[in-house]
Design a protein around this nucleic acid. Structure first.
Lengths: 352, 352
DNA sequence: CTTAGCACTCGATGGAAAGGAGTGCTAAAC
DNA sequence: GTTTAGCACTCCTTTCCATCGAGTGCTAAG
C-alpha cells in the first residue's frame, strides 16, 4: 500500500529532524515546519497512522516519534534527496585524496582514514577478495655466498623482494639456472602447484641449491598469500564518542571493540553494487543491529574492487554520507583507472 | 628529608590501594591492612603529614587520600616491588610474540598491538630515528620496452622494489650500463647527493635513458625517506573506555583523539634507558598531564632502537606494566639479536 | 607518641514535587 | 469526512531536600 503524499512528507521530516537533532520529534514541530498549512492535531493523526504502519516508533507514550528501521528504509529508498556535493565539499575531498595518497603508506588503510575524515563517522576499508594470483616472473640476485635477493613479480604487476640467507654456501653463478628453473616451472602456477613442483625437483639439485630454490618458492608463496589475503582496516572509531546514541560508555566501548577486534565481521557485500545501505537489523551481525552501514565499492583495475564502509547510528546522515562516500569511491576508481596515482611503493599495489 | 619507614609503608599502601580500587583510601582501611598494629587515628596523623609534604592529595575534606604525582614518583622509585612475572604471564607473552609476529604485517604496528594486549592499556610504538641511510646496491630488470623493475637494497640490508613505467620506450640492453652507473655514482650517497649527481649526468645520457635513471633514483629516494621516517603507531586506545577515570566521555574522547591524531607528540625519550616512567605533569605535553606513560626501548640490531610506550591514568598499575613491558621489550631485543624472527617481508625490515 | 571520642564536612543516594513536552481522544467546525 | 481546538493524561526530566555515611581533624586522656 502506497502512502499518501502527505504521509511521506511527514515521514521525511521526522527522519530528517531526528537525524539532525537526535531527539524524538513531535507533532508541533512538524506542523510548524510545514508552514502552518495544517495543524498539529492533523499531524498527530498522521503520525499515529504512520506508527501503526510501522514506519515510526515511540520511545514512550508521551514522547515524540522516531523513525523505525522500516521508516529509514523508505526514506533512503524514496524520500531522501540525493544531494550533490557543494564545490567546497568536492574541493575538500580532492585535497584529502591528493595530499594523503601521496604518502608512501599503503592505500588500503589510507582510504579508510581518508573516508573517516570525509564523513565524520568511523569507517572501514577492505581489500576485495582477489582471484587466485600467481607469479609472473622470478629474479634471483646474488649478494654473497650465503645470501641472495629474491624478486617476485606477480600476475597483477606488483613487485616484491627480500633478502634471503642460506645456511649453506652456494655457487652464485648457478643462480641464473635456478632463476630459469623458477620461471619455467613455478611461474604462472598456484601456490599448491608450486609446492608440488618443489618436491619433484628436490633430487635434481644439489642440497645447497635446492635450499636456495625452496627459499625463493617459499617467499613467493608468502607474497601471494599476503596479496590475496583479505584485509580489513578500521579508522576513525573515536568518532563514536561524539555521537549522542553512544553517550553510554559501555555501548560505545562495545561498538568500538567490535570495530577493532572483530573487523572481519563487518559487512562485506558480495555483489558489486557501487553503494549499499544496511539499516539497523538489516545487518546480519547482531552487534550492528542498531547501527547502519553504508558501503561503497571502487574499482582498482584488473577487474578487482575495493570497499569502503561507514558505520554509524541508524540515525546516520544518509544524504551526506552517501553523497560524500560515492564521490570518494568514484574518485578512487578514477584515480586507479587513469593511473593518476602517485608513485607507489610496492606494498601499495599488493594491498589494494 | 627522608620519610620514616612507617610513612613509606603507609604511602605504599595508599598508592597500591588506590591503584587497585580507584577510590580515595581512608585511614581505617590502612589501619586494618596493617594488622591492627596501629590505630586509624595514628594513621590519620601520618596521612595528614604526608599530605603536607605533598605526597598525597585529598579530593575534598571528607574524603580519603589519593597519591599526588610526587607520591607516585616516590612509590615508583623506592617503594614499588619490582615483581617478576609469573610463569603463566611469561607464557602468555611468549605466545603472543610468536603467534603474532609470524604474520607478514609490519613489525612496528604489531609490536604496539601486542603490547596493548599484554598490558591492557593503550600503547604506542615508535621507530627510533635512524641514522642516515643510503643505497647499498641497485638493480634494474627490464620488463618490456616501457617498463622495468628497480630493486634497491639499502645500507641496513632491507630490499625494496617496484615496477616503473617510462613514457618513452628505451633500449633494455642499456639497463646494465645504467645499473652500473647507479651503483658507482648513486650508491652509498645521501639523498641530497643523489639528487645532485642526477643533475650532473643529465647531459651524458639519451633522454629516454635519463628518464629511466631518474625514475630509479627517485624511487631510491622514496625508499630511503620511508625507511628513515619516524613512524608512530597506536593501539588499544579503546582500553581507555574501561578506566574509571575516563568515565567522562569527553575526557575519554580527548585522550583518544590525542593518541590517534597527535601520536607524534607522545613522549619519545632521547636517551636509551631501557625503561622510562613519566608521571602526570612530568609529561611535557599538556594533554598528558593527568596520565602516566611508561616507555621501554628495545634493540633492533644495527645499533638502532625501537620504542613501545604505554599510556594510562596516573593511577596506572606500574608494577605490572613495568614488569610486563620490560619482559616484552627484552624479548623483542632477544629476537632481533638472534634473528629468531620468522621470515620477514621487506616492509618489516624497513619499518622497525 | 598513641588513641578514643566526637563534631564536622561534604559527596552520594534517593525520593518527592514540579515542570513540560507530547500524546490521544472528543467534540465541534469546515 | 477531514480538520482542528481543547483538554486530560502520561511519563520523562529536573530540581530540591533530607538523609546517610565515610572520612577527617581536633582534643583530651592514656
Amino acid at each position: 500500500m502506497e502512502l499518501s503524499e502527505r504521509k511521506k512528507q511527514i515521514l521525511k521530516r521526522v527522519v530528517e529532524d531526528y537525524i539532525a537533532l537526535a531527539e524524538p520529534v513531535g507533532s508541533k514541530a512538524i506542523a510548524q515546519e510545514m508552514g502552518g498549512s495544517v495543524s498539529s492535531a492533523t499531524i498527530r493523526n498522521e503520525l499515529s497512522e504512520l506508527s501503526e504502519l510501522g514506519y515510526l516508533e515511540q520511545p514512550h507514550t508521551s514522547a515524540g516519534r522516531i523513525p523505525s528501521p522500516k521508516g529509514y528504509r523508505l526514506y533512503v529508498n524514496e524520500l531522501m534527496e540525493r544531494r550533490a556535493l557543494s564545490p567546497q565539499e568536492e574541493e575538500t575531498i580532492n585535497e584529502t585524496l591528493h595530499s594523503k595518497l601521496a604518502g608512501l603508506d599503503n592505500v588500503l588503510s589510507r582510504a579508510g582514514q581518508m573516508a573517516a575524515s570525509i564523513v565524520n563517522y568511523p569507517t572501514y576499508a577492505v581489500t576485495a577478495g582477489r582471484r587466485e594470483l600467481s607469479v609472473k616472473r622470478f629474479e634471483l640476485l646474488g649478494v654473497d655466498e650465503r645470501s641472495f635477493i629474491v624478486v617476485v613479480m606477480t600476475d597483477d604487476m606488483s613487485v616484491k623482494s627480500q633478502l634471503q640467507h642460506s645456511p649453506l654456501p652456494f655457487d652464485a653463478s648457478r643462480l641464473g639456472d635456478l632463476k630459469n628453473l623458477l620461471n619455467t616451472h613455478f611461474a604462472s602456477h598456484t601456490r599448491e602447484e608450486m609446492s608440488v613442483h618443489l618436491m619433484s625437483v628436490s633430487d635434481q639439485l644439489s642440497p645447497e641449491l635446492f635450499l636456495v630454490l625452496s627459499k625463493a618458492v617459499e617467499y613467493a608463496r608468502e607474497v601471494l598469500e599476503e596479496a590475496m589475503h583479505r584485509d580489513v582496516v578500521t579508522a576513525g572509531t573515536n568518532q563514536i564518542l561524539k555521537m549522542p546514541e553512544y553517550r553510554d560508555i559501555d555501548k560505545a566501548h562495545e561498538l568500538m571493540t567490535f570495530m577493532v577486534d572483530n573487523k572481519e565481521n563487518l559487512p562485506i557485500p558480495e555483489d558489486d553494487a557501487p553503494l549499499k545501505i544496511l539499516i539497523g537489523p538489516e545487518n546480519v551481525n547482531e552487534a550492528l543491529h542498531d547501527t547502519s552501514v553504508v558501503v561503497a565499492s571502487y574499482d582498482i583495475g584488473d577487474g578487482m574492487r575495493g570497499l569502503v564502509g561507514v558505520v554509524g547510528p541508524t540515525r546516520m546522515d544518509y544524504a551526506t554520507v552517501t553523497a560524500r562516500l560515492s564521490y570518494f569511491a568514484d574518485s578512487l576508481t578514477r584515480m586507479f583507472g587513469k593511473n593518476e596515482l602517485p608513485p607507489q611503493s610496492e606494498d601499495d599495489k599488493s594491498k589494494q
